[in-house]
Design a protein around this nucleic acid. Structure first.
Length: 436
DNA sequence: TCATGCGGGTCAA
DNA sequence: TTGACCCGCATGA
């Protein structure tokens, strides 16, 4: 759509700034929540969006006083890495989430690298003119306005859920899970009959975390006590967050909380990300959408990460498609997800996931930029020494994954074994797991 | 214990 | 004046 096609109201919706006295209220479509907002983006979320209400971000953002109670400002803390720049045997880098609390962060930095016992080092974010990237949140009317300034110049840290899961893991097991991993073998290097290695599964969250490598998608699954509603919430948000082009139709009457419909919607949403056309859909906030998607893509590709990964459900504690198979979210889980999910049927997959079966049934293989900042594959992955951010990726085709058994009782070993086998990416599962 | 939000205050550009 | 940052406090999980 050409800019001249916008009427004045549209322009108002598109050209707002977080500091404006008056923000647009004639927003027709709100954005899907973005968990990894980057670059100079703006989003308009529904005031019903729980994630937006909580001003969530998977970047480690701390509150910053801007002496303006109307606008909440947050600045990025960067990422905690090993001072020795060590790698695990599998070539994974250590990317820990900086503690938000100042004291906790100081304590954190006194701790040693879980991998090599070297010192931990905080890489500050300098993505905004040498200053940390800042995020602004403003509640106005029925909407929550979000604006990001700066581009993160550091790897993604582990997500909040991952960090919480890691802490919970420590509490429950008392010792680093690596002990267990050593006993059972490395999860990333082991496969079961009929299984293939995790690398091709693509959006694995394989950031190394204090002795335990947690695929983000299972981070909430590791500990039974880990609250799952948030994970589901996050997943669903992710399913909706396929790029800043995602929008939520406020008038969508299909926003029932019927789990089956939600699943179906989520499934559709999952498909959406592979529709190249979606990349250029205007977001509610519009202005940056098209350009920023491209920009983000290019940047992420340069950084070795893929926007597609952001569209994945890295914090989802179980394979999304296991709903109809082995698990169904509680109503409680769904309550945390007030946003609507678009009902469009899956668009033709003009651009497929590397492992997405094509219409002919064959797995489609495509080289895509992959986020190895936080999603580090194992095995064949060899980290370049000169630049840890530049990774090469060769997907392994023909991968299959199995869902966890029907038993709801997973002990830790089983979980780790399962996780180590092959983290099933949602999109693939969507095609492998029978629906209802 | 830590995340989060608020707000007083300081400092430098 | 503005933006970044430090600090303490309160609240909640």
């Amino acid at each position: 759509m050409e800019p001249e096609d916008f009427d004045s109201e549209d322009k108002e919706v598109l050209n707002w700034d977080i500091n404006d006295m008056k923000l647009p209220q004639n927003v027709k479509k709100t954005d899907w929540f973005q968990e990894w907002p980057d670059s100079y983006v703006k989003h308009i979320y529904s005031s019903e969006d729980r994630n937006a209400q909580r001003h969530l971000s998977s970047w480690a953002m701390r509150n910053t006083n801007n002496h303006n109670s109307r606008i909440l400002k947050k600045s990025c803390l960067g990422v905690v890495v090993c001072g020795h720049n060590c790698s695990t045997k599998e070539g994974r880098k250590v990317y820990l989430r900086p503690a938000i609390c100042d004291k906790a962060r100081q304590k954190q930095q006194k701790k040693s690298c879980p991998n090599c016992n070297g010192p931990l080092k905080l890489i500050p974010c300098r993505g905004h003119g040498g200053f940390p990237v800042t995020n602004f949140w403003r509640h106005d009317g029925r909407f929550i306005f979000f604006q990001s300034k700066g581009e993160h110049d550091h790897p993604k840290p582990e997500t909040k859920l991952e960090a919480e899961a890691r802490r919970a893991m420590k509490k429950v097991h008392g010792a680093p899970a690596s002990v267990s991993l050593k006993l059972k073998g490395n999860p990333g290097s082991k496969s079961l009959p009929g299984e293939t290695q995790s690398q091709g599964s693509l959006p694995l969250t394989w950031s190394f975390q204090e002795g335990v490598q947690l695929p983000g998608s299972y981070s909430g699954h590791l500990i039974a006590n880990t609250p799952q509603p948030n994970s589901l919430n996050d997943c669903l948000s992710f399913s909706k967050s396929y790029g800043s082009g995602g929008t939520t139709d406020l008038a969508d009457p299909t926003s029932t909380l019927d789990p089956t419909k939600l699943y179906e919607k989520c499934r559709f949403s999952s498909n959406r990300i592979y529709n190249s056309g979606d990349l250029f859909q205007p977001s509610a906030s519009g202005v940056y959408s098209d350009y920023d998607n491209l920009q983000a893509w290019n940047k992420n590709a340069a950084l070795g990460r893929s926007p597609l990964n952001d569209n994945y459900c890295p914090n989802y504690p179980f394979p999304l498609t296991s709903w109809p198979c082995d698990f169904f979210p509680s109503q409680n889980s769904l309550e945390n997800f007030p946003q609507q999910i678009p009902l469009e049927p899956p668009a033709a997959k003009t651009s497929c996931h590397p492992l997405w079966p094509n219409p002919g049934g064959e797995l489609y293989e495509e080289k895509v930029p992959v986020d190895f900042n936080s999603y580090v594959p194992s095995l064949a992955y060899h980290p370049p020494q000169e630049d840890p951010f530049l990774f090469t990726y060769t997907p392994h085709p023909h991968q299959q994954c199995s869902l966890p058994g029907k038993s709801t009782k997973w002990d830790f070993e089983e979980e780790m074994t399962y996780m180590g086998l092959d983290h099933c990416n949602n999109e693939m599962l969507l095609n492998l797991c029978p629906l209802r």
